[in-house]
Design a protein around this nucleic acid. Sequence first.
DNA 1: CGAATCTTTGAACTGAGTCAATTAAAGTGG
DNA 2: CCACTTTAATTGACTCAGTTCAAAGATTCG
Lengths: 270, 270
Amino acid sequence: MQSAVTPLNSPPRNPLNARCSASDVLHWAGVPSHASLETDAVFFGMRRVLADGTLVREGQPFESLHLVSSGSFKHVQTDLEGYEQVLGFAIHGDIVGLDALGRSWHASSAIALEDSTVVVMPLRELLPLCKRLPALELLLHRAAGTELLRRADTQYLMSAPISEVRVARFLLQLARRQSALGHSDRRLRLYMTRRDIASYLGVAHETVSRALTALVNSGCIGVSHRDIEIIDETALRELQRVTRGRSPHEAREQALLHSQARAQIHTLAA
Amino acid sequence: MQSAVTPLNSPPRNPLNARCSASDVLHWAGVPSHASLETDAVFFGMRRVLADGTLVREGQPFESLHLVSSGSFKHVQTDLEGYEQVLGFAIHGDIVGLDALGRSWHASSAIALEDSTVVVMPLRELLPLCKRLPALELLLHRAAGTELLRRADTQYLMSAPISEVRVARFLLQLARRQSALGHSDRRLRLYMTRRDIASYLGVAHETVSRALTALVNSGCIGVSHRDIEIIDETALRELQRVTRGRSPHEAREQALLHSQARAQIHTLAA
DNA sequence: CGAATCTTTGAACTGAGTCAATTAAAGTGG
DNA sequence: CCACTTTAATTGACTCAGTTCAAAGATTCG
């Protein structure tokens, strides 16, 4: 388990020249139970990417997967007219480049939002290793599955017709990921610009600003630059029920009625 | 290659009791070049799902992946309030259940839009087989990658602020998939309801109706029930440039200016 | 043939996009 | 270290497209 060498959620002290064991990778990527003496003996190199630097670029040959060790990235795709669509964000423990699986070229770019370090896992090494070490295969599968789940979450998020709801869901999503890494789920730092958030949510960047101030005014959150404090998580969740022309309060009442009706049905069925 | 036994894109005649070789699976899933004598010797069972039937249900244990042989499915996820979000559609050659990769339970349901047949690939058989047959491993990776790409496409689609653009992109996406299967890219059948499309696009179902009639009135498409004819694909593509308050014509002019400006820059750089 | 569902169309309201202007923050170079 | 430039973020005003509610056709299915 070697938790003494690499305490959970702590990147190595000297990430530039350091190599990093497959066990570390398993820890960071969320399957710590599968680390073993064998995975202790496998090492990967690391790479540093400065803020605004490109880790992988759309159209580049797919040669390596990267695990984010420190820092953060945005996934972007550029369409014919030059519009940049932000597809998602990657933080510690996330694997970058999965959408190229089974292909020869990357379909999206990964751009560092701050100075970051990644573990480089060359496919030529990784795939043969997977055959020998089931833990690494599981890691790969789990990472792909997680990415798919996250995209589903994003679709759900984008389907909200009210921008305040989108932003609320976005913050909750971020808080959930942060807390899964052992960080606070009440205080969170936005490492991306409002524009990036807007592109991700599918709204205008002014709308993100307005939604955030609206959430501040309703006492749900506190905002200072890129630091967010979640003050009333319950209220933030309640917001999900808001639809056009219906206030959070009314929505809550309707939801109550619904659950009562459902209880009635259950009673009748029994 | 056995193209005599299973001609490309043609499901077997008797899918109910028939078993189906791994080579067939490779053909249908788009990696026909990797079929071999070895994959000829591996067989999977098949399963029939009636219209509105559930192939996999959210929360069920993840035991098999399914390849769609005939028919079509929608992927749905239900939130706490009971709202059904359509995440995507699966047709011939698509693999259902990938979002459970690396996990024990399915995160979304797959519901048949019509009477359908699928190839059942139990994980207990599939994963060991992958170690022996690199072709199957590639299939798995490629399927995961493709699914990720498709979700990115969906995000792009949902990011369009104008509903007409969303619907146009949806139709083009569908046409592209149909034509990849060797079908016409001008005539396409919608196997899903307007409601499903609306949920998928993140708009009200009335809006889908209105957008479709608008596209008919502008001469881009013809609609009859669930049969769509793409009359002017170019115009449909041009639509992508439309933003709020800007007509397709203006958008085209602006795009021209942009490309001219870009040409200028290139000239200066040279 | 009737019930249920799907689809279309209408009308009213309103929330979000767009344009514009101001403020704040961050990065640059003397 | 401070003026200067550039980029990010906020706020306001206006317009319009999309949601919502409602009702009427169309289609499917029993």
